[in-house]
Design a protein around this nucleic acid. Structure first.
Lengths: 109, 109
DNA sequence: TCCATATCTCCATTCATATGGAAATATAAT
DNA sequence: ATTATATTTCCATATGAATGGAGATATGGA
């Protein structure tokens, strides 16, 4: 992952509402959640929700597929993985132990 | 680490200049770097540099100590560690393997 | 076709962030 | 004391992000 992409992903997650959306989608797993359910869970007006989903989508952290009239959103794990890889490689002295982490498996995505 | 702190740390790193400052400090290791050297490396006007250092400091990602008339800045590794811990725990289904990572050692800081 | 549902786009408004010149503060040296 | 160095704070400005109402678009069902 390049620095530009890392900045985009970090910016997408650096907002309470969006971080909560992402966490909810992670918890929902591979099946994902329709936009409506997300808004319901977090009590968000539709326009606000759409705005944040667009940001996450733009950063590559979520995708969606249509199912009837619902759009089902899901977390993109490999993107999160790539972000964690970037951070451990670039912000832990190339030595993850410096940040208390075990050796990372080389970023695949 | 709480969600609030994670958002603050993410926001601090979600900016190209600040991410570069932090990476530079990580590379510099425990001895750190005087503010002036950082600005020199990255070609930043002093006011801009001071602004970003304040943001990083506020997020707990850097500290500084005075040495003569220089302020020596250094990366706070345990904070980065805590952020990575938060992300793997909360954004990888509580299952780091979902993000291609080995099991994390429990966040100590 | 007509209506209901799910979600988005448009827009105005508000608030926060980023940038950098200029002046202020702190330390050191002569 | 005075001057030089290192860095910060102050301030104005420009740019971008967040919020949410209202209307547009897409799909499915009667």
């Amino acid at each position: 992952m390049e620095t530009q992409d890392a900045v985009a992903a970090l910016a997408a997650l650096a907002q309470e509402t969006r971080l909560e959306i992402f966490r909810l989608l992670v918890a929902a797993g591979a099946t994902g959640l329709p936009a409506g359910k997300i808004g319901e869970h977090l009590g968000l007006p539709s326009a606000t929700l759409a705005f944040h989903l667009k940001e996450l989508k733009h950063a590559g952290l979520v995708t969606f597929t249509r199912q009837g009239r619902s759009l089902i959103y899901a977390a993109v794990y490999h993107r999160m993985n790539a972000l964690l890889g970037y951070l451990t490689e670039n912000c832990c002295q190339g030595n993850p132990a410096a940040c208390g982490l075990p050796a990372p498996r080389k970023e695949p995505a």
